[in-house]
Design a protein around this nucleic acid. Structure first.
Lengths: 234, 234
DNA sequence: GCCGCTCTGTACGGTGTCGTACATACACCC
DNA sequence: GGGTGTATGTACGACACCGTACAGAGCGGC
């Protein structure tokens, strides 16, 4: 079977005891997520839950149909579709692929069944739900009090921590929807960070040059919302 | 037993089947919550979960130790301490009594036990956790995009819906911490609503004069974050 | 090599909120 | 009924971000 040869980098899956995992495995399907893919739109029925390996998914809240704002970021430490574990079938957020890569997915019905069978999975999914909730709450406050430059720095660091690399591809236009500001606002903030040699970028290719420096430029929310991240970088 | 004579107005408790409820009842304790009481501080170990009857509790995120922002509001439709149901012992938010009244509380350990025994309780708590999560996400976006006056209107309506009355007592100073703005900012916004005869107030006594008008003044988030509220007012 | 497209940079006036300071108004108490 | 404390109102300059418009810069395709 192909799956057994695949690297399961997702923390929730790989933390399962072997016996439970074997049961789940047959329902897991390896998929490639492309940048910009919409896994769910607001109000959509959730057909699959996704366990990112090296992909990265953004959870967005939409307001007045033209403003977007990221409230959560899901990488290999979590899963997309926690609502299912809470007994809710529809998504209240847009789930969009922010970093291309692979993920394991499972049909909603199978996921529910596995949750009942595996106390271990149940536990880790619950824990992750809490982490996500805390992240959303922290982001809410961050968006209210901190300015764009700090939030951009925080966002870049969070992305780095999840993709595990100092380079990734994201345009300023995309970032403006994540941070909920104008594209021009991102340009100014990014420019300021670039001028301080903390990052470099060109046409969407972002490179973090000075991680420590960027952490200093980021707001305190970075440390707070990441202390629960299992795959923490040094 | 005193409890049997008490009106259990909490939706999560009153939705339980009688057999489950009888089991839980012995672990429930009626308490009066006073305005300003702190049920948990950030980082506190959660000793009790609270099921508000006619009281109202705010969940606050703190930033940089001097800014506060409300991310969630819990009335009789929910419970305070959802983290416990997710297997987490510490609170990541401050839970503060915003509206005095009664609540039922249960020790953490008992609550965990009841969750295991009652599938019904488990289900409704899960559902509420999701509702709260959606509310937090919506609030995050609202705080980012909408201005103080609309947010104040929304906040007053949400409070009204939970306390079930058009009058309640809250100072502008208190409101400034809820909305995450200066006290002066609240004054200006409140004044604008008062001038339009939507509300009246004096020294903390707030009176909603024109509910419909206030809804019109509120941002779209009001309808969105309330469509899941069981005890919806007409 | 030129065109066209996307991405990034700059400019401009407007405005919502900030931080701070001080003035007024109401309620309660001796 | 005058004093005290809390609640509310007003003022003012500063500034972060807004909406919009347009100019340059990098990259791919023909």
């Amino acid at each position: 079977m192909l799956l057994s040869q695949t690297v399961i980098a997702n923390a929730l899956l790989s933390s399962m005891p072997r016996s439970d995992y074997v049961n789940s495995m047959v329902h897991l399907e390896l998929v490639n997520l492309e940048f910009g893919d919409i896994l769910y739109e607001v109000g959509d029925t959730i057909k699959y839950v996704y366990f990112p390996n090296d992909s990265l998914v953004s959870l967005l809240t939409l307001v007045d149909s033209h403003h977007a704002l990221e409230v959560g970021m899901v990488g290999s430490e979590g899963l997309v579709g926690v609502a299912i574990a809470l007994g809710v079938k529809q998504s209240t957020v847009r789930a969009m692929v922010q970093g291309a890569g692979s993920a394991m997915r499972m049909k909603t019905a199978h996921f529910r069944a596995q949750l009942k069978q595996s106390a271990s999975l149940q536990k880790s999914v619950n824990l992750y739900t809490h982490v996500l909730m805390a992240q959303i709450a922290q982001t809410a406050a961050c968006n209210r009090f901190h300015q764009v430059e700090s939030r951009l720095a925080r966002w870049l660091l969070m992305t780095r921590d999840r993709v595990g690399m100092n380079q990734f591809h994201l345009t300023q236009d995309f970032l403006s929807d994540m941070l909920g500001v104008r594209r021009v606002g991102v340009t100014k903030a990014a420019r300021a960070l670039k001028d301080r040699n903390l990052i470099d970028y060109s046409r969407g290719n972002i490179d973090i040059l000075d991680g420590k420096g960027l952490e200093a430029a980021a707001c305190s929310c970075y440390k707070l919302s990441n202390h629960t991240l299992p795959t923490r970088r040094s």
